[in-house]
């Protein structure tokens, strides 16, 4: 563990709390892509199958359980508790275009041909593009509630902070995980446009609005 990864994990944790807080205080999941959230459930469930086989630390195990549980809870909030506020008609990104290619990539690039390793690889690739339905929705509506942008910024910062973690691990342990690094770079890259608007508008106190 190093400071970058720890801050990344905290940022990830914060993003989930911000999202749940937004849904509960506004009593609405308006502006949140159900598809992105559903993909996250798939990401966490497929990645953390190692909960049954590998024990790393209490920290590691609790975080994994928290990410699975909280992502399922968010789906519950969206599909049951605040269902009327969820508008599928603007959440139109075709998720199958993400899952298909990621499944192919996972079959080609993995660290061993076992069910858990291929699913782990799939989860890494899927996570890197999971935000696309959400960003697509943002693009379509052209604006977002400020709290939603804080959620996205924290979520984007999580993988961005893993990049210095990987550099650090390379120099301190000689450890390289090419699958995670490649996917992590792609994932962070997808946020660059968003980060630009977030830093130049939202953090200056303006509303998040995309140019028409």
């Amino acid at each position: 563990m190093n400071i970058f990864r720890f801050l990344g994990d905290l940022s990830h944790l914060a993003s989930i709390f911000i999202l749940i807080h937004k849904i509960q205080t506004t009593r609405s999941c308006r502006g949140i892509s159900f598809k992105t959230q559903a993909v996250y459930v798939a990401v966490f469930v497929t990645r953390y199958l190692d909960l049954f086989t590998t024990f790393v630390s209490v920290y590691n195990t609790s975080m994994k359980i928290f990410f699975i549980a909280s992502s399922c809870y968010i789906l519950y909030l969206m599909k049951v508790r605040f269902r009327p506020t969820n508008d599928p008609s603007i959440d139109t990104f075709r998720v199958e275009y993400l899952v298909g290619p990621c499944a192919v990539l996972a079959l080609i690039f993995n660290y061993g041909y076992s069910v858990t390793e291929v699913l782990w690889s799939l989860s890494i690739f899927l996570e890197s593009v999971a935000i696309l339905p959400q960003l697509f929705m943002l693009q379509r509506t052209g604006e977002a509630e400020t709290i939603t942008t804080h959620y996205l910024a924290a979520l984007g910062a999580y993988r961005a902070l893993y990049i210095p973690n990987w550099i650090y691990r390379y120099f301190s342990e000689g450890y390289v995980d090419p699958i995670s690094v490649t996917a992590g770079l792609v994932q962070t890259g997808l946020y660059l446009d968003f980060f630009y608007v977030y830093f130049t508008k939202v953090l200056q106190g303006q509303k998040f609005e995309l140019p028409a």
Partner: peptide, 10 residues
């Protein structure tokens, strides 16, 4: 037993 790197990252 050594834990492979990708199991300790989240």
């Amino acid at each position: 037993e050594e834990v492979p790197g990708h199991h300790d990252e989240l």
